[in-house]
Simulated assay, not measured.
Amino acid sequence: MAKTDSTGSTWRYRWAHRQNVRRVSTYRGAVAAWRRRDDELRRLRALATDFQGSAAAGAGLPLELAADEVVLWALPAAQLVEVRHTAVLPAPDLTVAARTEPLRPRRPDGVRVTDAGMAVITSRRLVLLGGRGRRDWAYGRITGLAHDPAAPVTLIQVLDRRRTSGLWLPTDAAPDFRFKLTLAFADAIEQRAAVLDQLDELIAEHAQLKPFRTAAVTPGQARLSSFVPGGRRTIAVAAAIALLVPAALIESDPSDPTGGAELAAAATPAPTPTVAPALIRPAVPRDALGTPPREPTRSPRPSPSTTRDPRCGAPENPLGYDFCGGTRIRRPAAEVCDWFDCVPDFWAGRGYLVQCRDGSVSLAGGRSTACAHHRGVRRTISK
Rank of each mutant, 00 (worst) to 15 (best):
G326V: 02
H373E: 10
A266S: 12
G133S: 07
A207S: 10
V158Y: 04
Q19P: 01
I280W: 09
R223Q: 14
P219I: 08
L183S: 05
A98C: 00
C337M: 13
L363I: 08
L129R: 10
R192S: 05
R135S: 13
P271I: 04
C337S: 06
D345M: 14
D187M: 11
L209F: 13
S305V: 02
S6Q: 07
R36P: 11
A116W: 00
R107K: 04
G231L: 08
A283R: 15
G290F: 02
F227Q: 12
H17D: 00
A97E: 15
R233T: 14
D136C: 04
A333K: 11
A265S: 10
L353W: 13
H17K: 15
P273T: 13
A16G: 09
P175S: 01
A288H: 04
L353K: 03
P302W: 01
H147Q: 10
K383C: 08
Q157N: 13
R375E: 07
R192A: 13
S360T: 13
E64Q: 15
A283P: 09
P302C: 02
T86W: 09
G131I: 02
S305G: 10
E262P: 10
S252F: 07
S225C: 07
T164L: 03
A270V: 14
V343R: 12
P246T: 04
A2F: 05
G230P: 10
R43P: 05
R22Q: 12
E101W: 02
V336G: 04
A78D: 01
D68I: 07
P102F: 11
Y139K: 10
F323I: 11
S9W: 03
G133F: 10
R379S: 12
I121T: 12
A55S: 15
L126P: 01
D187H: 09
T10Y: 13
A59Y: 14
P332Q: 05
G376V: 00
G313D: 01
H374P: 01
V377G: 05
Y27N: 06
Q221I: 06
A78K: 00
G260M: 02
G60I: 11
Y139L: 06
R233W: 06
A59V: 14
R84V: 15
A215S: 11
T143K: 09
W34V: 04
A267L: 13
L63G: 06
V71R: 00
G130L: 03
V354E: 02
K383W: 07
G60C: 00
E64T: 12
R298M: 06
A55G: 00
F51I: 02
I203A: 14
V354A: 00
R379N: 08
R106A: 14
L202I: 07
L129D: 12
A16D: 05
L159F: 02
L75F: 03
V195L: 08
S382N: 11
E262H: 04
L363V: 02
P315L: 06
R286P: 05
Q157A: 15
D160Y: 08
I189S: 01
I381N: 01
R213M: 13
S123T: 07
A236E: 14
S299V: 08
L41N: 12
D253L: 01
G259L: 03
G133P: 08
P211L: 11
V81C: 02
V83T: 15
H374N: 14
P300R: 06
R162S: 03
R281E: 05
V83F: 10
A240V: 07
A248I: 14
I121G: 02
G231T: 01
E251F: 15
V237S: 11
L126M: 10
R330N: 06
A370W: 00
L209T: 15
P282M: 15
L169F: 10
